[in-house]
Amino acid sequence: MTDWWDYHLIDFLLFSTRVYYRLFVSFNLAFWPVNLVLYLAGAVLVYRGLRGGRLFQRGILVVLAVMWAWAGAVFMGHYYRPINWAVPYILPIFAFQAVIMVLFSLRKTPLVFCWRGDFSSMAGVALLILAIPVYPFFSVLAGHDVLAAELFGSAPDPTIIGTLGFVLLMRGTWRWLLLPAPVLWCILTSLTLWAMDQDIAWLPLVAAWLAILGGWMDAKSGVTRKPEATSPVHLNRAQRGAADPAGLVE
C-alpha cells in the first residue's frame, strides 16, 4: 500500500511557473475588460465602504461574493483545474465563501465597514493596499508578461487577501465566519508559491496571520461587539462630529 506521506510537497506541483503565470495571461485576455472592471470595482468598494452608507455596506458583500464566484468558477474551474487535479477539492471553498457573503448581505443588521484606528483597521487597509494597487506588479517584477498581472476581483490570491482586508475593517456579529475560507486558501496558495520558489510565497501566509491576529485582538477588546449605533458611519453628521472630533472618518 502506497501512502500519501511517501510524497513530498514538490511532487504535488505538477506544473511549471511559466504555465502558472500563463494562466493569468489567457484569463485576462479572454475576459478583457471584465477583469479590469472587477478590479476597478474593488477600488470603488474600498472608497465607498469607508465612506459608509447602508446600501454600500450590503453591496460590498454582494460584489465580493461575485468576485469569489468569478475567480472560483472561471479562473479556478476553467483555467486552473486542467493543470491541478486538486482544484475540484478546492472549489467548494469558493462556493461556500460566495454563498456566506450573500447571506451576510441579506441580514437584517448588516456588517459595517469602518475605520476604527485600531490594529485591525490598519492591518485591513494594509491588506487592501497590498491586494489592489500592489499585487498586479508582482508577476511583472518576477519577469512575466504584463498581461499575467493578478488582479483583485478575478485572480484568487489578491481577491482573497483583499477580502481579509475587508473582514478586518468590518464590525458586527459572526463576521469571523468569513475568515476560514480565505485563511485556508492563503495556506494553500502559499504552499503552491513556495513549491514554485516564488519570492512572494510568504505574503498570503502573512495576510492570514494578520487576519487571525486582528480578529483575536478585536475579540479580546470587544471592539467589534460594540453596538452598531456607536459606529461613526451610522451616526448623523452632528453626532459624527462629536464622536470623531478630529474628522478622521470620511
Binding site: 506541483l13 505538477l14 506544473f15 511549471s16 504555465v19 500563463r22 494562466l23 489567457s26 476553467h78 483555467y79 486552473y80 486542467p82 493543470i83
Partner: peptide, 13 residues
C-alpha cells in the same frame, strides 16, 4: 511529460 506537458488549455503552450 511530467510538468512539461501540463499546460492546460493554453493554445500557445
Amino acid at each position: 511529460s511530467w510538468i512539461t506537458f501540463n499546460v492546460g488549455v493554453d493554445p500557445v503552450l
